[in-house]
Amino acid sequence: MVNIVLNGEEKQVAAGTVTALIDEIGLDGRKVAVERNLEIVPKSQYLGTALSDGDRIEIVHFVGGG
């Protein structure tokens, strides 16, 4: 298990990579963007980006706005 801060909340997750994390939450990876410790994680690198204890992960998508 890895202890991360996900969208501002402390979470313990089983996922070892960004791809696994997106699957674990139940999101469609094509419709989100991911930031790890303030750095963008390109979609092509989801699989190869390992999660470590203390990582601050943001997962965002588009919502209605003006």
Binding site: N7, I25, F62, V63, G65
Partner: peptide
């Protein structure tokens, strides 16, 4: 169309998404 960027809903990942409509 203008759109905003926000955190995904972690508790309900199946809620409707803007991209599926607009």
């Amino acid at each position: 169309v203008t759109v905003a960027v926000r955190r995904v809903n972690l508790t309900d990942p199946n809620q409707p998404m803007l991209m599926d409509f607009v």
